[in-house]
């Protein structure tokens, strides 16, 4: 029997997760405005942390719970892929310099209780045990042992690699038009599909009322003199700054959060803030090589919560804000489960 036809608009993080969940049962056509597969959308730049508890400080409890659910789904998705993608669950370490202790206390007070997730208060000695290279630098911290992260660059590559071998057609770097005909059929570029999954992120701004971009800037560095076993968050007066260790001594240092639609290059101020924060955590970052400095737009609605909407055979999944990796598998599963899974 011929498989039903599904179009996926946008091949960023959400589009990939949807494609992985659908490729066995459907014939997929994947449309992406960017000219190539592996550097599009906020998901390509992100640190890909899976930190439901740390994020619970700034999001509603149900969103954090959704993050817990997604953590259980990631290993299954990654197991489909033809090449290994680092998935780590060694917790998150949160530290603060002496002058920012007030922020650390307030962070600790605002952690929301999540089933199966516990926060541990750490002394300087505890920190040294977890992260030997940070010994003597911090006297207090918080450890969220159940959190994790993954290697998003490897995920981007491996998911493309897999889908290329499956029943998927790819259209990169082309403009595409989403329409409905008089019978409420959903069409992309005049071709009728059984379902269209709109995962365009900020690219869907014109169609989705209330969607806005929240600018984020990140640095990616190669620091052979630094070894960290897990993502480290540093309390900062303006943004939560994190340093997420990726394979081969690469680190993602992020991220600013600016209410702006500007996706132009990173500013000097943001670069200085991010890199100096990293240097204050570990002086080994002084000799690190800057591999990339990036800026992108996180798609967000005014309540900063993800939104799924269904309209005549078009399912739109958007507004994952700063919680793309944290939420994508759970949100996409929720969006597809009624009609497609």
């Amino acid at each position: 029997m011929k498989k039903p036809k599904v179009a996926i608009l946008g091949f960023g993080l959400v589009g990939r997760v949807a494609a992985l969940m659908l490729h066995e049962q459907y014939q997929l056509s994947i449309f992406e405005a960017a000219p190539n597969a592996n550097d599009n959308g906020a998901g390509a730049l992100a640190a890909a942390m899976l930190a439901p508890m740390a994020e619970s400080v700034i999001c509603d409890t149900d969103i954090a719970q959704l993050g817990v659910e997604a953590m259980g789904l990631w290993p299954k998705l990654l197991a489909m892929l033809p090449s290994p993608v680092m998935y780590q669950q060694t917790g998150t370490l949160i530290v603060a310099h002496q002058q920012d202790m007030g922020d650390l206390r307030s962070f600790s007070q605002r952690l929301k209780p999540l089933a199966g997730h516990q926060a541990q208060q750490l002394t300087g000695q505890d920190i040294a045990k977890l992260e030997p290279e940070l010994a003597g630098r911090f006297h207090q911290g918080i450890y969220l042992p159940s959190e994790g992260q993954l290697d998003n660059q490897a995920f981007y590559q491996a998911s493309f690699e897999l889908l290329q071998t499956k029943d998927c057609r790819f259209y990169f770097g082309q403009s595409f038009e989403l329409q409905h005909d008089e019978h409420s059929n959903a069409l992309v570029n005049d071709e009728v599909f059984d379902w269209i999954i709109d995962c365009r992120g900020i690219g869907a701004k014109k169609q989705l009322a209330g969607l806005r971009g929240v600018r984020g800037e990140v640095a990616r560095v190669y620091a052979p003199e630094v070894t960290l076993n897990r993502p480290v968050r540093l309390m900062h007066p303006r943004y939560p700054i994190y340093i997420a260790p990726k394979p081969n001594h690469e680190f993602v240092i992020g991220a600013t959060e600016i209410e702006s639609q500007d996706d132009g290059p990173i500013t000097v101020r943001s670069t200085l803030e991010l890199l100096s924060a990293a240097y204050t955590v570990h002086s080994g970052f002084a000799e690190a090589r800057v591999m990339a400095l990036n800026a992108g737009l996180r798609p967000a609605f005014t309540d900063n919560r993800p939104k799924i909407s269904v309209n005549a055979k078009v399912i739109s999944i958007n507004g994952l804000y700063r919680h793309g990796y944290l939420l994508a598998p759970a949100v996409v599963k929720q969006a597809l489960s009624k009609e497609l899974l």
Partner: peptide, 9 residues
């Protein structure tokens, strides 16, 4: 970074 057009939302 918020020019009028960029920061309009």
């Amino acid at each position: 970074q918020n020019s009028v057009s960029a920061g309009d939302d």
